[in-house]
Amino acid sequence: MSSLPAGFWNRILFLLQNYGFSLLKGAGTSLLIAFVGTLIGCVIGFIVGIIQTIPVQKSDSFAKRALLKAVNLILAVYVEVFRGTPMMVQAMFIFYGIAYLLHYVMGMWFAAFFIVSINTGAYMAETVRGGILSIDAGQTEGAKAIGMNHLQTMLYVILPQALRNIMPQIGNNLIINIKDSCVLSVICVVELFFASKSISGTYYIFFEVFTLAMAMYLIMTVFFSRLLRWFEKKMDGADSYDLATTDTLAHTSGMLNYPGKRG
């Protein structure tokens, strides 16, 4: 262990030279957890959101209605429990709970992905439900009128539009997960906060280490919020469009004249 220099900037430099890599590795771990957690969380959210918006008709059989009701109840409990408790407590509860009950100790990555995903899923479920409800009923009617079933209507018409509408919220969740992955340090996941804490514990310098940690978190969140904003714009498509005038069938000047009666 090399000796610690004096002065704020000298210490920053010292930390970067000696621990830059472990800080970066911690930041990478935070990012990976946030990414995977948000992605799986979105999938969970979409599944829960879609199930919760399946329309129930009076004409449906009793079995179908009962099943839907039971599933919806379970999903409601899931959403309430994971939205209503801190992720840090959930991490302890799940990690040690499973170790105690099933005599199985989760690996660091698995535990991290599992806890962040399931937590994000609970938030995303409500977001997706809101996104689906925000789409005009006319879109569903238009799809039904050309013969699409519920799944096709969702897949090709409603969800792409809902996804666009909830993109800001997905971005929000990613940013939150980049930061909140730090609570996983309680179950010894070596992400940016855990790495910073270890280094500061070694030298008993806190301000310098956490200045670096602050900067790294900020760089990550600002970068990804900008990236997502750019992606949203891309999803909207071009502002203008080209007239397909090279098309031989195209008539740019108003309507086609009808060549008499057909068949």
């Binding site: 879109q139 009617e141 009128a145 013969g147």
Partner: peptide, 23 residues
């Protein structure tokens, strides 16, 4: 089936109901 029937009976709406996510 509902799908098969609706595919054979077209509908045009007052509010168009074109899919906004497609060209």
């Amino acid at each position: 089936s509902l799908s098969a029937y609706r595919a054979k009976v077209g509908m045009v709406f007052q509010s168009f109901n074109l899919f906004s996510n497609m060209n």
